[in-house]
Computed example of a mutant assay.
Amino acid sequence: MPEIAEIARIVHYLKKHAVGRTVSAVKTQEDAIVYGKVGTSASEFEKAMTGRKILDAKQQGKYFWLEMDSKPHPLMHFGMSGWMKFSNDDSTYYRPAKEQAEEWPPRFWKFVLELEGTPVCQVAFVDARRLGRIRLVDAEKEEMRKTSPLKENGPDPVIDKDTLTVDWLAKKLRSKKVPVKALLLDQANISGIGNWVGDEIMYQARLHPEQYSNTFTDEQVKKLHDAMMYVCDTAVELLADKDKFPEDWLMTHRWSKGKKEAAKLPNGSRITFLKVGGRTSAIVPSVQKKTAAVAGDVSEGADEGEDQREEEVKPKKTAKRKSKPKPEDEEVKEEEEDVPVPKKQKKGVNGTAQKGKKLGTPIKSEDASGQRRSGRLSKG
């Protein structure tokens, strides 16, 4: 899913094309999940955005928002597969098959903003799996981070360095007894770190991702902090373009397309995979040693292909049991957004299966998360 660096990329494009311009028109498609789960409707969003000027674009971890000339302000989260596209620029790293121009609006759009002025530009929020969230926050722009849900999330490693110090991290680690990577992935602790960023941090720190968080020495905590700042700063600065990442990064070599024997660093060190709590972690055993107790449910030798193709992973069958239905407006937690959805369950705008196999042009892409973004272009 898009993590701190991928969100920084979108904020970059919003600053480049949208900031300083007025929204002349808005098109929306009603979605009781993407809008409704967080207490907003497409019609409310359309009304709130039309005729308003965009003053800035900002980010906290995996969340990003537009500062408008008056409240409310739109706050967004991509979930597993959301993205933002621009009619006059390519915000991803791919080109459509046969170099044909992409039709507009793009498939799976939730809103399209038409901007005044030149160059002509429209901005579309797209989400095939409907795990993204779009809401309106009725707060002054200076108070956004003091308002839910941002206030419930931890500090951002890039913009909150005064808060996320070595001492702060040491106290946080020692206040819990959980696998250290699980602590990093919990957005209530630290904002923006997902699976691939977490793996890179642990590799650069030369620490084992499943060692309990309260077992690290002061020296190890310092290494972890240094690695976190280095990885997040570098990935954000490079706007998640993995082709520009340092050659010695684990990220550059971990994607083996399911062939574990192919996952090696340039020096020949083998990359292996652990699975704990349903998540796959890439590690280099020759340098990431266990120095204290680790979580007991670690299983070694997990197939990296499972993580790379997580959109196709089927959930385990469990015994049926009766439970009370959850309210429709219940907030989807970060952990739930990370749960893979079987390929056959992918839904369209109206909650129905997308057919359209003969529509438009097939596209493929790969972002820093190593996931292939694919689909077919349609007329929306």
Rank of each mutant, 00 (worst) to 15 (best):
V231C: 07
E335D: 13
V313T: 15
E261G: 09
E99W: 10
R270A: 15
K320H: 10
A57G: 07
K316E: 12
H73E: 07
P157D: 06
V23I: 15
D338R: 15
A263C: 05
W65Q: 01
E328P: 08
R309T: 13
I201M: 01
Q204G: 05
A97E: 15
I7N: 00
I10F: 12
V180T: 13
T272H: 08
N214A: 07
N195H: 02
G61R: 07
L274I: 09
G198S: 07
T234G: 07
T318H: 13
L239M: 11
T40K: 04
D367K: 02
V23R: 01
G351W: 07
E366N: 09
G356Y: 14
N189K: 07
A262S: 15
S41I: 00
E200F: 03
M229Y: 11
T118G: 10
D233Q: 03
K326W: 09
R279K: 12
R129S: 05
V26N: 07
L359R: 12
D31S: 03
A48D: 04
N195M: 06
V126D: 02
L75W: 05
I363T: 11
E140S: 13
E114A: 14
P106I: 00
F64H: 10
L164R: 07
W83V: 04
T252E: 09
G132E: 02
H17N: 11
V11E: 00
V158H: 04
E152S: 15
P362Y: 01
Q308L: 12
E366T: 14
N267D: 15
P246I: 08
H208Q: 04
V276G: 11
